[in-house]
Amino acid sequence: MDFSHQETWLHHINPSLKLLILVVLFIQILMIHNINFLLNELIGMLILYLFFTGHPSKRLVLISLPFLLIFLTSSTSMIFFGKGETTWLHWGLVHITEESFTRGLHLGFRGIVFAVLGVVFALTTRPVFLFYSLMQQLKLKPKFAYSFMAAVRLLPLMAEEMQTLNHALKVRGVQRKKGITGFYHKLKSYSIPLLSQSIRRAHRIAVAMEAKRFSEAKSRTYYYRLGFSKYDGLFLIYLLGVTMLAYYMAVHFPYFSTTDVRYL
């Protein structure tokens, strides 16, 4: 699987800092109840996603397909069944009102902002750097950091095994069954061999790591030194700028008349 990409300034941000900032941003976004503000924030985050991850646009489009699903699933139920006073449509159980509509959209946008931020983080952070940084800046124990890094290495191996297993089942004459029982059978026939193989691999890797004196090391040096740079400041300024601008625009140039989507 090819996942090559170009490096951008987002890649050079200190991973621990990036993680913390995103967590704070998540909480801040949870507290936005003005749909205009949220929509502006979303645009600001989409700019990062579309232009600064360094990944080819085709891949970005592919990754963004699930965003649509998130949007639809999180907004429709609120739009159809939420409470509200200004009725637009009443049809059986479905009751769409102006209030429920904006609240549904708000929820949908919030889902997408979270998804975009998460994906931007994942696309611009190498797991190895993240764990090195967590060890160096946030004093994560090497025991955990290296275990995670080893586990990340196992994932592509598992994907390969899955392919082989798929072949093996076909070779044995297993015809695909449909419906829930088919899904259950598939789950059973894949999960047990994959799990047992992974457990065995994990054990072997653990022994191999010990054979390289992993736990004997009282203190350790680091191959990668992760510090801070001007890109960290840039990232912080960008996010602050976006937030302030989003708020300003929301107040002065709103798209929707509603300023608080909560039902009071």
Partner: peptide, 9 residues
């Protein structure tokens, strides 16, 4: 096992 001795990519 060549695939089970490394912990880094």
């Amino acid at each position: 096992d060549p695939d089970a001795q490394f912990c880094m990519p």
